[in-house]
Computed example of a mutant assay.
Amino acid sequence: MVPWNLIALDNALRASWAADTCSPDDLIRAGWQPGNPAWGHCDITALVVNDIFGGDLMVGEVHLNGEQHGFHWWNRLPSCIELDLTREQFQHGQTITAARSVTRPPRPLPRRREEYLLLRERVAKHLGHLPEPSV
């Protein structure tokens, strides 16, 4: 088995993001395009990264022009380094505020289960077997 690194994980995620794994919210899914593949993938990407590395899930509020436009998810690794593999999706001056650590949702996921499983499956095709979630 070849050891993984963050570049391999990032490449596997980028090759796996698609319209069918994007958030189903009408405005988000309508905004997904291959030129901005991270769009609408922060929540399930953070879960896959958490499956592999553990640590904490982080969430913050997305603001644009003084209005909240949803939430953004990323990871805090056990080393306390914060890792955000989807931050690039915000290309119009959005800001992330009110960051906090949250408990991983229980299994089965109450929301976005099918997209999460599909993303996990695609990433595993690139990296090999993924560890099972700790929860």
Rank of each mutant, 00 (worst) to 15 (best):
M1E: 08
V2A: 12
P3G: 06
W4K: 00
N5F: 01
L6K: 11
I7S: 12
L9R: 02
L9D: 04
L9Q: 01
L9E: 05
D10N: 08
N11G: 00
N11R: 15
L13G: 02
R14I: 00
R14N: 06
A15L: 10
A15V: 00
S16R: 07
W17C: 01
W17K: 02
A18K: 04
A19Q: 13
A19Y: 07
A19S: 11
D20H: 13
D20A: 03
C22W: 05
S23Q: 11
S23M: 01
P24K: 05
D25S: 10
D25F: 03
D26C: 05
I28Q: 12
A30E: 15
G31W: 06
W32A: 01
Q33H: 15
P34I: 05
P34Y: 09
P34F: 06
G35P: 00
G35M: 04
N36I: 03
N36Y: 00
N36S: 02
W39C: 08
W39K: 12
G40S: 11
H41E: 10
H41L: 05
A46M: 06
V49I: 15
I52G: 08
F53G: 12
G54Y: 05
G54I: 07
G54P: 08
L57P: 02
L57S: 04
L57H: 03
V59D: 01
V59S: 00
G60R: 10
G60T: 07
E61C: 02
V62G: 10
H63V: 02
L64W: 14
L64S: 12
L64I: 13
N65K: 14
N65D: 15
G66M: 03
G66E: 03
E67C: 02
H69T: 11
G70W: 09
G70A: 10
F71L: 13
F71Q: 11
H72L: 10
L77K: 09
P78L: 10
C80S: 14
I81V: 14
I81F: 12
I81C: 01
E82A: 05
E82R: 10
L83P: 01
D84H: 01
D84L: 01
L85Q: 10
T86I: 01
R87H: 13
E88F: 03
E88Y: 00
F90Q: 04
Q94P: 02
T95M: 09
T95S: 14
I96H: 08
I96T: 06
I96K: 04
A99Q: 11
A99G: 14
R100A: 12
S101C: 14
S101T: 15
V102S: 06
V102M: 14
T103C: 07
T103V: 14
T103H: 07
P105H: 06
P106I: 09
P108T: 11
P108I: 09
L109W: 02
L109H: 06
P110W: 12
P110A: 13
R112C: 08
R112L: 14
R112F: 15
R112D: 14
R113C: 03
R113E: 15
E114T: 13
E114L: 10
E114D: 15
Y116V: 00
L117S: 06
L118F: 00
L119W: 06
L119D: 04
R120K: 14
R120E: 07
E121D: 15
E121W: 08
R122Q: 10
V123D: 12
V123H: 09
A124I: 10
K125W: 03
H126S: 14
H126F: 03
L127T: 08
G128R: 09
H129D: 09
L130K: 06
L130F: 09
P131W: 08
P133C: 02
S134D: 11
S134E: 11
V135R: 12
